[in-house]
Amino acid sequence: MTSLTTRIPRAPRRAGAGSSRRSAVVRGALGFLALFAVAEVISRSGIVKEAFLPPASVVLMRVGQLLVDPEFLGQVLATLEAWAIGLGICIVVSVTIGVLLGSSRAAYSGSRAVIEFLRPIPSVALIPVAMLVLGNDAEMKIALIVFSTSWPVLFNTIYGMHDVDPIAKLTAKSFGRGRLSTLLTVSLPSAAPFIFTGIRIAASVALIVAISAELLAGASDGLGRWMLDAGATGNRPDLVYAATIIAGLIGLAINFVLVLVERRFLSWQPALRQTDKGTA
């Protein structure tokens, strides 16, 4: 429990596991260094023109500058705001509907055809409709995020509800719990790991959709809009590359936070269990 990286070992650790972990980190760092060197050489030597691929050192410097640039950070915040609101609405709506559909076989089979029809529609294909109805402000982004992220959360909630052990529900009933109480204290906690997996998928999809919507619809603000301006109008490939890297870092950071949340609150699920038996 000393640092974040050692908090929960995925597999039972044997002697020497620490050193193999360290060497894995070293190898990973070497891989990054090699990528950096290759990109730098390709650009500096003129194999690829600087206008297409700026030197890696320049891009990295731009990343550093952008991370302290208030104007840029404001745009990032606009994207993250749409991301958070969209994801929040998606969770509330999809979990509620998923719980209802997951509790009743009839409702599930009745709604399947509609869901299977709506689900394959690519969210990007809805951008024109969304723009037509909602303009190019945050509402448009949020609506697209909600539409595209609802599916993984909805399906995982339904599967999670179907997976609830009937004996667990029967146990609650035998101790006098009614249907609502059983739903809240047995079915929902039992389905929580499934739901959370859906939320993790949704979180990364939401970021993709937010930036795509900004890029394709020329939204009034956001990271995508900023990249559009830097590239097409400003003709600054170094800034576009730097912003792309930052977008990737945001995705990483979101996933990292969600993994921490999962390990903190859902550590009971079989995949994350730590039993004492390994040491016995």
Binding site: D165, I167, A168, L170, T171, S174, F175, V186, P189, S190, A192, L266, W268, Q269
Partner: peptide, 16 residues
């Protein structure tokens, strides 16, 4: 009345 189930691992709640 209280019922003790045969399958304790399924009757106990793993998240509690």
């Amino acid at each position: 009345l209280a019922l003790v189930f045969q399958d304790y691992s399924r009757s106990l709640f793993p998240w509690r």
